[in-house]
Nucleic acid binder design. Structure first.
Lengths: 124, 124
DNA sequence: CAGGATCCATTGGGATACTG
DNA sequence: CAGTATCCCAATGGATCCTG
């Protein structure tokens, strides 16, 4: 069986699910999007992501780095400085993610309406 | 601040994150894709999704139904029969999701290579 | 400044058993 | 057949404190 031309046999399916899990985690996409205009420092990201704990920012950046989506550059100055920057692979992820974001934006009112309607029916 | 033309101020950003969370959950996307060719019954989905527990299938379908992506139709026969079918909204989600799936498929070998390289550096 | 270490609450999700 | 109910474990993620 295939999914829209995408084979879903064990190996490929698992790979795709891993990617979807990364995209679906709470912060990865947001961080990728904030890096689209160039390198950012750790605390700069921490401020801009607004709401993320430094623990989760660290984990998110490690995950993205491990997947080859982000590079980590340490400047051995005092105080230390670390820049994070999208790799070409990271940049290539932006297009499909933005497509999904636009879908979300375009339909979020419809979704919320559906939720209200569903909840109303449930409470009846 | 905006993300690729998408405003990320509190309200919109939260809405987008909810959608991404749904897409990122373990089963929703898979179920949506399996429904692309028409209605399916509960146990039919349970077989095809291969690996999902009936508990999670139920939760996933309820979530999709609540968001207006799927309709649930009960046929009051014995034994009971319930069909699930994508709504137009559900179908419209396929395009961006498939784009993401194709990205995943296209780059999964690069990602795995990056992971191996990262893990190797770490263990050195 | 950048992050490691630790502790803790919440959630996701699987297994099993039961029901109309 | 299509669920619901219950139990339980693992993963997620936040808060706080500590350090080179």
């Amino acid at each position: 069986m295939t999914i829209g031309g995408i084979p879903d046999h064990p190996a490929e399916c698992a790979g795709i699910n891993e990617v979807l899990a990364r995209v679906g985690d709470k912060w990865s996409v947001l961080v990728v999007m904030l890096l689209r205009d160039g390198p950012r420092r750790f605390n700069q990201l921490k401020r801009d992501v607004a709401g993320i704990s430094q623990h989760m920012l660290t984990l998110t950046l490690r995950g993205l780095e491990r997947d080859g989506l982000v590079t980590r550059t340490v400047f051995p100055t005092i105080p230390p400085r670390v820049d994070y920057e999208l790799t070409p692979l990271g940049h290539s992820l932006r297009a499909p993610v933005e497509a999904l974001g636009k879908w979300a934006l375009a339909h979020q009112s419809a979704i919320k309406a559906a939720q209200r309607s569903f909840d109303a029916r449930k409470n009846a």
